[in-house]
């Protein structure tokens, strides 16, 4: 059954690479317009899922429709309507900034004359107008990523897929990118992004899915997820003796977690805990509202991933 209000409609989607399962039968529905976040630790299956959405990898099982069309059969017409910002920049080093946009437009069957004005506007959008004639090798990491974003918009796509768009960038560039992405969202484009930065997901995404080990383990609006999976407040305590840990645990409605030297006290009544901690000497503590990162760590655990 085809639903035109859905950008992605996956049921029982599976992918394994020579016997190793990367995506284990997920059901995914991404609505049109707004920003949809796909979160998860490394190896959770986010990028593989996006590759299937783009027809860049075959399905091992399940069904997938993108923009109402069956994948991977309709990959060419689907890709014509999507823009992609890849995790690793793959700009063409043999061309200048502006030429990159023209050459890429040609892959969509768009001629230089058709996109000349649009290309200039896109360079202005990502603040690279003064770099039009620069070769790719001379661009900084932030400039490359901004050019990747401009390139992904050359075909005026309905959907933009961004795979970790701000990883490794400085705060100035991240904020510029966030501003531009919000602008694109207002224009009615659908944004689908993966990220490791929880505050990025909280800022940009209307809905998120958290994946781990190839499965979807939580789904919803960031605020709802925080409400469902975490106590409202967190107090981080440094240098707390074991005796203090016991006393915190004795408080009502709290959850204590120790990670190395740090004690995380998740609670609905921070006031009592603060009253308890305030007179204790030789400790430092930080009281903050719970965030998506707390939810993420609670759901996916603190073990390191490769």
């Amino acid at each position: 059954m085809q639903n035109l209000d859905l950008v992605i409609e996956a049921s029982g989607l599976e992918k394994s690479f020579s016997g190793r399962a990367a995506v284990c039968g997920i059901n995914l529905r991404v609505p049109r317009s707004g920003c949809f976040g796909l979160l998860g630790p490394n190896g959770a299956g986010k990028t593989t899922t996006l590759r299937m959405v783009l027809g860049q990898c075959r399905l091992s099982g399940g069904e997938l429709r993108v923009l109402g069309q069956p994948m991977p059969a309709a990959k060419k017409s689907v890709r014509a309507r999507i823009g992609v910002v890849p995790q690793l920049d793959n700009l063409d080093p043999d061309f200048t900034v502006l030429e990159n946009l023209f050459v890429y437009a040609a892959y969509f069957g768009l001629r230089r004359a058709q996109v000349a004005q649009r290309a200039r506007e896109l360079l202005a959008l990502v603040e690279l107008s003064d770099r039009a004639g620069t070769r790719i090798g001379e661009l900084s990491g932030g400039m490359k990523r901004r050019l990747s974003i401009a390139r992904s918009l050359i075909n005026d796509p309905e959907v933009l897929i961004l795979d970790e768009p701000t990883t490794g960038l400085d705060p100035q560039v991240r904020h510029l990118i966030w501003t531009r992405l919000r602008g694109l969202k207002r224009e009615g484009k659908t944004l689908i992004l993966t990220t490791h930065y929880m505050e990025e997901a909280e800022r940009l995404c209307d809905r998120i899915v958290i994946m781990d080990h190839g499965r979807i383990i939580a789904e919803g609006a960031p605020r709802d997820l925080i409400r469902q999976h975490s106590e409202p407040d967190v107090i981080e305590v440094q240098g707390a003796p074991a005796e203090l840990e016991q006393r915190l645990m004795a408080l009502d409605g709290g959850r204590v977690e120790r990670v190395g030297e740090t004690l995380y006290f998740h609670t609905g009544s921070a006031r009592n805990a603060v009253a308890l901690l305030e007179p204790v000497p030789d400790i430092t503590y930080l009281h903050r509202p719970a965030n998506l990162e707390d939810v993420f760590l609670k759901l996916t655990g603190r073990d390191l991933r490769e």
Partner: peptide, 14 residues
Amino acid sequence: PQQTYDGMLATPVD
């Protein structure tokens, strides 16, 4: 090394 084809595979080029 250049991943040029990966870039192309995000477009209708296959």
